[in-house]
Computed example of a mutant assay.
Amino acid sequence: MLISSVSLSAILHGTLFTFGFQEAPLTAFHSGPQHSPYAMVLLPGLNEGPMALPWTTRIADAIAQRGWSTVQPTLSASFSGFGMSSLEYDTWELDMLMDHLVKLGKKHIMLVGHSTGNQQSLHYARFGKNRAPLVGCVLQAAMSDREWYVSAEPNHQKWIALARSMAAKNQSEEMMPRDAYSFGPVTVRRFLSLADKNGTDDMFSSDLTLEQRKAIYAPVQVKLAMILSGNDEYRPMTVQSELLLENARTAYPRFTVLKTIPGVDHAVTPVGGQIELVNTILSFMDTLDIPK
């Protein structure tokens, strides 16, 4: 199904609900056909939350025509909270979301990650305790936070050395200096996860060995799609998107879509690129092993 090229306003109608067992429950926004057994959970990147992506409404409207609802959670890691969170904590919260969605009648759930939301998606596909309803994941703009940081921060060696030193002194929950990381406040632990080699977030670096990449994908049991941006400003000039796609292909045989959208930035802001992105996600949905 091809989607319209007409510009869509950033408005979705739906239900805001709470989930989780904490004293202060988390929230998620549910739009589209809410009684459908099919749901897409959209996970954006660092410093982002619901409705952050320029193509949110476009993908939500497109999958609604196929009977899928859209769920946009606000996790502890959403917006500036990423620096105090972790992928393990994200997976714990996503487990609570999955439990809630199943109680709402959802039987088939797809995760669509953007940027660092890809680490959340892939970590959940690897370790989520309630991931039985998961049927697939889309990894959109799956860039290496580590390779970006090394290319963008001239003092990266200094800050990584400081973080390692603090971690060795049991100071992992202390905050890194303000100048160490431009995206926002970050603990030593999360900084090392994002910026150090073999950190928990280090899933998409071009220099990972085949054995490392296979180990990352080994626990995954669902089909995957990787959709990159041809002009991604967070990909170092020395790294080609074709290499990243080939690395994914050789690491995991159940990638059914591996594609670069030419001429678009990290967030896919051009309308033409958004249309191609959404149509690619719809094509990926056609490969999922679920009742039609």
Rank of each mutant, 00 (worst) to 15 (best):
I109S: 00
A141S: 15
S31M: 11
S76I: 08
Q22V: 02
W68C: 00
L111S: 10
A52L: 01
Q72S: 08
G117A: 10
L42M: 02
N130Y: 14
K107W: 06
E23N: 15
P44A: 01
R146S: 04
S78C: 07
L94M: 14
S80H: 08
L87V: 05
K106R: 07
Q120Y: 04
H123D: 15
H100V: 08
F82E: 05
V150R: 09
W68L: 06
M51P: 09
L134K: 06
L122H: 05
K106L: 09
V102L: 00
Q34N: 14
A52R: 10
I59F: 00
H114D: 01
W68K: 05
V71D: 01
I63M: 03
S76Y: 11
E88H: 09
Q140C: 09
P33M: 13
D95Y: 14
Q72D: 05
N47M: 08
V138T: 12
R126V: 00
F79P: 00
Q65R: 07
H114P: 06
T70H: 05
A52T: 01
S31T: 14
G45S: 03
T116N: 12
W55M: 06
P25Y: 06
P73A: 11
G105K: 09
C137V: 07
Q72N: 08
A28E: 07
V71T: 06
L134H: 08
